[in-house]
């Protein structure tokens, strides 16, 4: 049930991109300002996690777009201390699971092993772990889709379209 609602939330987050007005989306690392809610090693680990969720391909991935800093900013400012605590706990769990399965820290795993760890966490029985991974994934997707790079280069953001057409054929 929890998982279902988490998936539903993700759908809403992405649907929001289209149905919410443009101000509701978007950020850049410059607008975030300094955020130091995690230790340096924790932040590095989070960066590897967001990069695993959305990796660099022929376009930048979540790490180089600094999506991990967006995730930190959102959790610190908008979600409260309990969720912040769960983030820190979740990061510990990630390395525990990585060590348990592969005898290595998460950062030292290859892409497939990393994906296995995150998939394992997504299926965890523990609600706190589930909340951690779904929130990080949700915020990573929101942060990525609303970043300056993606908005301008992949989603063709226009502040002032100057029109509304109610019934347009989808280009195939």
């Amino acid at each position: 049930m929890k998982r279902r609602s988490a998936v539903k939330n993700l759908t809403l987050a992405v649907a929001g991109l289209v149905s919410l007005p443009a101000w509701a989306s978007g950020w850049s690392s410059a607008s975030l300002g300094p955020v130091a809610s995690l230790t340096v090693p924790e932040e590095s680990l989070l960066a590897e996690i967001v990069e695993t969720i959305i990796p660099e391909t022929d376009t930048p991935g979540a790490k180089s777009l600094k999506v991990h800093q967006f995730v930190m900013r959102m959790i610190t400012d908008c979600y409260g201390s309990a969720v912040q605590g769960n983030l820190e706990k979740g990061l510990l769990t990630v390395d525990q699971v990585a060590n348990g399965a592969f005898n290595k820290a998460f950062s030292n795993l290859d892409t497939r092993q990393r994906t296995d760890v995150l998939t394992h966490l997504q299926k965890a029985e523990d609600p706190a772990t589930q909340q951690f991974i779904s929130l990080v994934k949700n915020l990573t997707i929101r942060g990525y889709l609303n970043s300056e790079y993606v908005q301008l280069n992949l989603l063709d953001y226009k502040m002032a379209p100057g029109f509304y057409h109610g019934c347009v054929a989808i280009e195939s």
């Binding site: 101000w23 850049s28 607008s31 400012d77 908008c78 609303n146």
Partner: peptide, 30 residues
């Protein structure tokens, strides 16, 4: 402002919401 110039995707920080339980109920208090 461009969309990426808002650090919280329009969402109000929790401290502001807690300090403004009435205003925070308004759909446009972002």
């Amino acid at each position: 402002k461009n969309p990426w110039e808002f650090p919280h995707l329009g969402q109000m920080p929790q401290s502001v919401r807690e300090a403004n339980p009435i205003a925070s109920q308004c759909y446009a208090f972002n």
